Simulated scan of single mutants.
Amino acid sequence: MRGEILTLIAERGLVAGDQLPTEQVLSAHFGVSRATVREGLRLLEQDGSVRAVQGRGRFLSAVGDLRVERPVTRYESITDMLEGLGYSVTSAVLDLQEAAADETEAAALGIAVGDDVIRITRLRCGDERPLVVSVDTVPRHLLPGPIGHRDWSGSLTHALKIQGHEIVSSLAQLSSVMMPEGLADRFGLADYDPWLLVTETCMTVDGTRALFAKDYHRGEDIAFNVLRRA
C-alpha cells in the first residue's frame, strides 16, 4: 500500500506541501480497508515522506517530493519488480514441498520448530536470463488446500492476499553472497555469482508473519536505490 500511495502521488503531480487525500478517499480509490491505508500512510510518515498535522490532515514533505526509482524501502513482489524494470518475466518452480519448519524459518515466522510449512523454490527469468532465485516459506495454514491444486508460478503475495493475508511491510536484510552449493549445483546456477541476497520476513497489517523469503538477485542485473538523509 505504501508503494501504491507513492504511485498515486506521482500520478497526480503532488509536490511538497500538497495535502494528501483522506484515508476514506484513499480506501475507496484502492478498494481496500482504511486499516490497510492507515498502515501505508504510517510507513510514509515513518520515513519522512509524509507529515501529519493535527486537525488538518497529511501533507507531502520535501523528502516525499524526491523521486527515487524503485527504492529499497518499497515492498513489492519479485514479478512486479522485474516487470517494472522492463523485463518479460517467466517463472519456473524448481522445488515444492510440505515440510516441517526449521529453526531459522520458525524464528522468522513466529511459529514452533516442526510446525507445518510450505517451502517453494522458484527461478525468475527476465528475457530468458536467470535473474532471481527465490526460496519462500509460508505457514501451511495460511494457504489451505492440496498444494498440487495451485499454480505456484504466480505471486505468493497475491495468493496470500486472496486468502485474506495482505502483506503490507517486511523486515529485510541485504547481503552479497555466493549461491549456496546445494542450489547452485542442483539447478545449474554456479556460473552467475555473486548474488544480492534479500532475506525478509513479510507481515500483514495485523502483524501476522505470513512469508519468509530468501531472494537471490543476480548482482550484475539488479540494483536497489536508497534515499539517504543527514
Rank of each mutant, 00 (worst) to 15 (best):
M1A: 08
M1F: 07
M1L: 09
I5Q: 01
L6I: 13
L8T: 04
I9M: 08
I9N: 04
L14E: 00
L14N: 05
V15S: 15
V15T: 14
Q19S: 14
P21C: 05
P21V: 06
T22G: 03
A28R: 15
A28F: 01
H29G: 00
F30W: 01
V32M: 09
A35V: 11
T36V: 14
G40N: 06
L43I: 10
E45T: 08
E45G: 09
E45Y: 03
V50D: 02
G55D: 04
G57R: 03
R58Y: 10
V63G: 00
R67W: 08
V68K: 03
R70M: 11
P71Y: 02
P71V: 07
V72I: 13
T73C: 08
T73R: 14
T73P: 02
Y75E: 08
S77R: 02
M81F: 14
E83I: 12
G84Y: 07
S88G: 11
S88H: 13
V89L: 06
D95T: 07
E98A: 09
E98C: 09
A99K: 10
A100W: 05
D102T: 06
D102S: 12
E103Q: 11
E103T: 12
T104K: 15
T104Y: 06
A107E: 13
A107L: 12
G110P: 02
V113F: 02
G114D: 08
G114C: 10
D116V: 06
I118P: 00
T121W: 04
R122M: 05
R122K: 14
L131N: 06
V133S: 00
V133W: 00
S134E: 13
V135S: 09
T137Q: 06
V138R: 01
P139L: 05
H141S: 14
P146D: 14
P146L: 10
G148E: 13
G148R: 13
D151C: 07
S153A: 14
G154H: 10
S155N: 11
L160P: 04
K161I: 00
I162G: 01
Q163D: 10
Q163G: 02
S169M: 11
S170H: 15
A172H: 06
S175P: 06
S175W: 09
S176K: 15
M179S: 00
P180V: 05
P180G: 05
P180Y: 02
E181L: 15
E181C: 01
L183S: 01
A184H: 06
F187M: 04
G188L: 09
L189G: 01
D193Y: 01
P194C: 05
L196N: 12
T199I: 11
E200H: 12
T201E: 04
T201R: 02
T201G: 11
V205R: 06
D206A: 13
A210W: 07
K214Q: 15
D215A: 12
A223I: 11
R228I: 12
R228Y: 07
R229C: 11
